[in-house]
Design a protein around this nucleic acid. Sequence first.
RNA 1: UCCCCGAUAGCUCAAUCGGCAGAGCGGGUGGCUGUUAACCACUAGGCUGUAGGUUCAAGUCCUACUCGGGGAGCCA
Length: 459
Amino acid sequence: MILREPVESVVRREVGCTVTVCGWIRTARLSRTVAFAAINDGSCAQNLQVVFDRERFTDDSLSGLLTGACIKVLGEIVSSPGQEQAKELHATSLEIIGPVDDAYPLQKKRHSLEFLRSMTHLRPRTNTFASVFRVRHHLCLAIHRFFDDDGFYYIQPPLITSSDCEGAGETFQVTALPLTQVPLKDGAVDFSRDFFRMPAFLSVSAQLEAEPLALALGKVYTFGPTFRADPSDTRTHVAEFWMIEPEMAFFDLEDTMNLIERFMKHCVRYVAERCPDEVAFFQKHYEPGLTERYRTILESEFERITYTEAVETLASSGARFETVPRWGEDFSSEHQRYLAGEVFGKPVFVTDFPASIKPFYMRVNADGTTVAGVDLFAPVVGELVGGSQREERLAHLGRRAQEAGIDMETYRWYLELRRWGSAPHSGFGLGFDRMLMYLTGMENIRDVIPYPRAFGKMY
RNA sequence: UCCCCGAUAGCUCAAUCGGCAGAGCGGGUGGCUGUUAACCACUAGGCUGUAGGUUCAAGUCCUACUCGGGGAGCCA
């Protein structure tokens, strides 16, 4: 067993304690009487300064103190005369566990995020990525805690599905057929000879599978990976990402907005409490407005306007848009950012969209032309959440499905939910990785995911 | 997929009108008050993304391609 104490705990130790620490050297400095190495073991944002008395350590024994090397140090906690840290470790023994050579790519200076993207195996050793992944962990737990405390059940929908969820993007097909010799029948692929005896896909949304659980357990949520084969090559898109999809029986659209707002505030508060060092780091190096962003979310009441009001606001704003906002068309990302950023300066719920631009499962409003959908737009990043009250009336759903060209046989089970014991219910979807971007200020989704899978690239 | 920008030392970048390929950091060597991305000196390190073209002369201009980034669309 390798005994060692994490830096996160060492920095809270009393002066005089003897500890063993293992970590990677971030920077090392040698002078005549003394040498310093700042080491980090990932347990926290802080480095631990280790001091080597050069009377005790020979030049040779310190020659391995290079940026990137993994070392094990036994020493005593002493108070530090330096300005940048209260305590430091006075070394009594040093072991170079993993030496480095001069080809080690990470240096004690800033690297571009693009450069670091080319080495996903080493970038977690940088302050930036270690911080991102620590916040990622805490945000995951914040989500589970929120829903557990709120009476939700965590469910696991299938990742492999038989159908393409309407309107949610391109699917990856899953097959066990030999692609070099695909079995054919009447000129088409014979899927009856595939693994599932039918075509299969990776899930693009768990919503449809979550609804039956909500209509039995009351409140449920999913939190898992989602796959999209869209050829989207942007800083907010990847092929594999994580989504949170709560689904609630006996919730109307207003209940849903209240839930989303409470949820967002909980997550922000949780991260601010658990990761103060990381938030300060991102504030300093990436997004000067980050703590202000947190404050706005925590202290403001999110704006709520209808789609029609939003279009009018945009049209009369005097701002010049590349695409003119017109009723009946979806908002472009510049519209979303303008509404949240310029008009309100805080997150804004937009509700009641034209039925023609939304999927068949959203509940038709009394006016017959709009549906009870809601999007949450945030400053800078645009759309964060998309949700709706689901159409629970069989006749309405049947009509909308037909208009949308949905194969009724495939969705028979979905219609049957409305046939037997139907109930009003609602849900929403939230891109976890995008939320992490929002909370860290990282501007490319590929920099908040350990191993991003994107169009044309497998990092 | 479309539009825009970029590619020069290991990394981050500079190179004026087309005229000798540069700096900082990192590496090595030496020096040095307990330093904080330490500092000082010296040193090694280059087929300027690839393939063509224009020119007396191309890192610089033109064409194509490759790779990277940003934006649009689609979406989370």
